[in-house]
Design a protein around this nucleic acid. Structure first.
Lengths: 134, 134
DNA sequence: ATGTATGCAAAACATTTGCACCTGG
DNA sequence: CCAGGTGCAAATGTTTTGCATACAT
């Protein structure tokens, strides 16, 4: 993820955009809300506006530089870099902890289902809500 | 869905609660936002407060009388009656049209995945975002 | 230069909450 | 009767927008 990706999206390479990418790259765990990102930027001493974070994330989402998810128990969206292989998520309903997993068989069946319904599969979201075993 | 289910949940059988159930039963398509439900109730001449709709839906969700989903392109949640077999959703990204489907193999694999991670699968949400074929 | 991007504050939403008044069992 | 439920309006929290200023190319 770099200037290259920003340019490819037809966007100018600006400091706020680089900083948002940087925060997303360094974050661990790497699922952050817009607010999380805003706060991390403040901590990094960079003074970036609230609105800019939201705008940049929206543009990055359109450009497929980041992915947005809605699995947070409270309302807000979370973002992660879209690099690497597609994966799904497992959320611990007690702790909120997020684990990623990949299952090629499920991907395959999804394509079959879309095919049976004669539509094109554009995207999908699979979230497993789990609980630690007692 | 009836007074029986409301009582089973430890809730009193009140007019607002019955009306919300009624609207959910009669709705077609049957995925409604809280706002949709509120508006339908106004149309039915019943004057029910905004807050009550939200409160009732929240209680119904806890009682597993309804299920809440987050697949709306804009932020808001949608609700549907939880009766019948579990199913997943396919959303047309152009029209917003929602189609339901059931795939036992996917359910099975999900249980396997949870099992491999040594956690209990409490719930899951699978949404396929699709486009009509041109 | 000039079209984009940013920061700020205000607006827009969806949802929740406080509280005095009702109502179901 | 009276704990639980409701309506209203105000509060909350997140995300968007308007606009004057600053910046990338």
């Amino acid at each position: 993820m770099s200037q290259r990706d920003i340019r490819k999206a037809g966007l100018r390479v600006t400091l706020p955009r680089l900083r948002v990418l940087q925060v997303l790259e360094e974050a661990e765990p790497h699922h952050l809300s817009a607010e999380d990102i805003y706060k991390k930027l403040l901590a990094l001493d960079e003074s970036i506006g609230h609105a800019t974070v939201y705008r940049v994330l929206m543009q990055f989402e359109d450009a497929k530089i980041v992915r947005r998810h809605n699995f947070a128990d409270d309302g807000h969206a979370v973002y992660e870099l879209a690099e690497g292989e597609h994966h799904d998520h497992m959320v611990d309903i007690d702790t909120g902890e997020v684990t990623e997993f990949v299952n090629e068989r499920i991907e395959e069946i999804q394509r079959e289902i879309a095919d049976n319904h004669e539509v094109d599969l554009v995207d999908h979201e699979l979230v497993l809500y789990v609980k630690k075993r007692k």
